[in-house]
């Protein structure tokens, strides 16, 4: 029997339209609000007055923090990849298959726990009277106390610990698809162990690495809790600055301008990354 009315194609479009509209709206509306909020709307609009908040963002203090956040995002993303590569390679190619799920769950356990609690775990470990200093003191009294908390070290460790699971998950998927035959072929043709990594493993899994990097890079750059809990007082990141502007100074316009500038910079870096030909090819394969 022929059903009158929409053909299958029309039906699919209609079905997809509603959720797509919601998703796009939820994505765009906040950005529009953000921009509106950051701009001065006067009766006689004048360019310099309209974007007054943005010229403050351009001051070196704020630019420095913005730059530091973006650079930190990139460096720590690279750090996550460096840790995730050997772990996922082992997991996908050398771990006994029946143990893989268990190991994967253990590795991604931080995803299941509260984000703020995860940061405080490291306070407990790295504090002056914390686990590491206790152990050092037990080895020799002169080794303790060492200042570990509120340093670049604690910030780095905390960030990598929290964001590593995302990178591990995406990279594991790529690693699992990496065929051992390519490694055997490269070894057979004379590739050293190091060459197996650079010639086969990295190119074959670059898409997974890129996907993981895309997920964590912007989140690290824009993180609030980790620098607040584990970072030093002089090492503010952009999210703390925005929060301060909103909640402490109550300068909503400046906060919105900061947030939009950050969004623009992060997006710009992503776009530069994606338009590099190599990366685009890899991401398409993914």
């Amino acid at each position: 029997m022929q059903v009158r009315g929409f053909g299958p194609r029309t039906r699919a479009v209609v079905l997809a339209a509603a959720p797509a509209t919601i998703a796009v709206t939820l994505g765009i509306v906040p950005v529009v609000v953000l921009v509106t909020e950051s701009v001065v709307w006067a009766a006689t609009p004048e360019l310099s007055g309209m974007f007054a908040a943005y010229s403050r963002v351009g001051e070196s203090v704020y630019l420095g923090i913005l730059g530091r956040s973006v650079v930190l995002g990139m460096v720590l993303t690279a750090g996550c990849l460096v840790v995730a590569y050997p772990v996922t390679y082992w997991l996908a190619h050398h771990c006994p298959p029946h143990r893989r799920v268990l190991v994967l769950v253990l590795l991604t356990l931080p995803l299941w726990l509260n984000y703020v609690v995860l940061n405080y775990v490291w306070v407990w470990i790295l504090a002056r009277g914390g686990l590491v200093n206790h152990l050092l003191g037990a080895i020799h009294p002169s080794l303790s106390p060492v200042r570990l908390l509120y340093t670049d070290l604690s910030l780095t460790v905390g960030f990598i610990y929290i964001y590593l699971p995302y990178v591990i998950l995406t990279l594991y998927v790529a690693m699992e698809r990496l065929d051992d035959a390519y490694l055997a072929a490269a070894a057979d043709l004379g590739a050293s162990r190091m060459r197996l990594v650079t010639d086969v493993i990295v190119p074959q899994t670059a898409a997974g690495a890129a996907a993981g990097a895309l997920i964590v890079y912007a989140r690290i750059a824009g993180a609030f809790a980790t620098p607040e809990i584990l970072g030093g007082p002089r090492q503010q990141l952009i999210a703390q600055l925005i929060t301060d502007a909103y909640l402490e100074v109550l300068d909503l316009r400046f906060a919105a301008a900061l947030a939009f500038s950050f969004l623009a910079v992060v997006t710009f870096v992503l776009v530069v990354g994606l338009t590099s030909r190599q990366l685009r090819r890899e991401v398409r394969r993914w």
Partner: peptide, 11 residues
């Protein structure tokens, strides 16, 4: 020795 694999394994 060199080997031609069953599934070839061309890069």
């Amino acid at each position: 020795t060199n080997i031609v694999f069953q599934d070839l394994a061309l890069f």
